[in-house]
């Protein structure tokens, strides 16, 4: 992190809005402290929703929203939360936000709500969210907690989308199926879900059935962890 920092105008507080620490909060979860590949949290939904890119993108946005705002709200009331019931209070905040996400999807994009079905509701149990609230928001100021929430949501979402891209291309030969951007990449045209006969790049390719199954996500995430660990010096075990 040695680049020249753009001087942000200082706002009241002595802490800068986007200082080194703040940027670290955003970028750390993307690589060095990724919720999925390093902390190995939130695997269940990462296996379940990643067979298509479009639902994964929606899921990623939903999780970013929930982690960001639950961190913010928890941090705002952190000094008022009674210690004895703090987990329940956090859970109520998370559940509220998840319900809002669920209602919003139902209201504005019903088909995708059907596609994601229970997994939106299961964000409540996603360890990333609760984990960040306990570990960070309960002890930090609102703005930093908010950034930490966004960072962790993005770290989760990035892996989700990467896995989904691989699985959809090799499992269905398409990208963004179900959305207006839907395109056919490889394999015979006019075959699977997609009606366009254009861009049948590798006509000989036949869809890999394994890639559609959740097990494929397990393998892909495993390989990702392997690559990341051999490439990121900070993650190499010194002992």
């Amino acid at each position: 992190m040695a680049e020249n920092t753009v001087q942000e105008p200082k706002v009241k507080t002595s802490e800068p809005l986007f200082g080194k620490k703040e940027r670290k909060l955003l970028t750390d979860p993307l690589n060095d402290n990724n919720p999925i590949t390093v902390q190995v949290l939130g695997i269940c939904s990462a296996l379940a929703v990643t067979s298509l890119v479009y639902p994964s993108v929606v899921m990623a946005i939903a999780v970013v929203f929930v982690t960001a705002f639950s961190s913010l709200f928890t941090s705002l009331i952190r000094n008022a939360i009674p210690k004895q019931v703090r987990m329940i209070v956090q859970l109520v905040i998370i559940a509220t936000l998840v319900t809002i996400v669920e209602l919003t999807l139902k209201r504005f994009n019903y088909p995708i709500y059907k596609e994601l079905s229970v997994y939106i509701g299961l964000i409540i149990t996603n360890c990333i969210v609760m984990g960040r609230l306990e570990a960070f928001s309960m002890a930090n100021k609102p703005w930093r907690s908010f950034l930490d929430g966004i960072g962790n949501g993005l770290g989760y979402g990035a892996i989700l989308i990467m896995v989904a891209v691989i699985r959809e291309i090799f499992g269905k030969g398409s990208l963004f199926a179900g959305s207006p951007l839907e395109m056919k990449l490889i394999g015979a045209g006019a075959d699977f879900m997609i009606n366009t006969e254009t861009s049948a790049l590798f006509g000989w390719y036949s869809n890999n059935g394994l890639m559609v199954l959740p097990a494929a996500a397990m393998f892909i995430i495993g390989i990702m962890i392997w690559i990341q660990r051999s490439w990121n010096k900070k993650l190499i075990d010194i002992s």
Partner: peptide, 22 residues
């Protein structure tokens, strides 16, 4: 933080959340 405070906190919070979601 005594019990009365905990109860008050939980009741107010749940009421707010329930109201807004409803």
């Amino acid at each position: 933080m005594n019990t009365a405070y905990v109860v008050r906190f939980v009741v107010i919070m749940t009421a707010l959340v329930a109201l807004s979601l409803a």
